[in-house]
């Protein structure tokens, strides 16, 4: 049936949804209450009009400035730099960070033609130089692109008064040393913590 096939094709374009899951969702949508489908359809069709980027940090928000940037109770000496807006929500979910954020909207990737000028690094430097921040936490992915971007920002900030730190990378909690790759193990050893100081 053409309409079901089109729906399955459309759903399978979503991240994490393969053909099988798409057909399961499609058949579920056919059988459930039509009002729920209308509501879901409306939510999907209006989401891009409702959500925009925060004028300050570049994260997702419904207003001009996001809730995090508006919160005066946050630690105004900390700023955490992330690649994508969804990373803000991941770090927030951890519940251990109480500072502000800055979203770069990507990472330096020479082969994809993404250089420092295509990211919001300029705005970040301006925020740091005009703000009260004393520490910049670089929370980019531990990939070649993420590492290079972190190194580049560190280089730009080397003459400023702020300290820069990078998220630790190493053994996952509950993991097994035997199955850890040698690059991760090497990083864990380099970033080891002195237990006697704690």
């Amino acid at each position: 049936m053409r309409s079901i096939d089109e729906l399955i094709r459309g759903l399978s374009r979503l991240p994490g949804v393969g053909n099988k899951s798409a057909s399961r969702i499609a058949y579920h949508l056919i059988q459930r209450d039509v009002r729920d489908n209308h509501l879901l359809g409306e939510l999907i069709s209006t989401i891009q009009d409702k959500i925009r980027l925060c004028d300050v940090c570049g994260s997702f928000t419904e207003g001009q400035i996001c809730d995090v940037c508006q919160d005066p109770h946050r630690d105004h000496t900390l700023i955490c730099v992330v690649e994508q807006p969804q990373d803000v929500f991941t770090i927030e979910a951890s519940g251990v960070y109480n500072g502000y954020y800055h979203v770069l909207h990507g990472a330096i990737s020479p082969l994809d033609g993404i250089g420092p000028d295509q990211l919001t690094i300029g705005q970040l430097i301006e925020r740091i130089t005009t703000g009260d921040f004393s520490e910049v936490i670089l929370a980019m992915n531990p990939t070649e692109e993420g590492d290079t971007t972190a190194m580049y920002i560190t280089h730009l900030l080397r003459s400023s008064r702020v300290t820069t730190s990078r998220l630790a990378s190493g053994l996952p909690v509950g993991g097994d040393l035997e199955y850890t790759d040698k690059v991760t193990l090497a990083r864990s050893l380099r970033g080891r913590i002195r237990m006697s100081d704690q």
Binding site: P110, P116, E144, D147, T148, M151, Y152, H155
Partner: peptide, 11 residues
């Protein structure tokens, strides 16, 4: 890994 330390090296 050292290529990540310098933008010109990486490029």
């Amino acid at each position: 890994e050292s290529l990540r330390d310098d933008l010109v090296d990486l490029y």
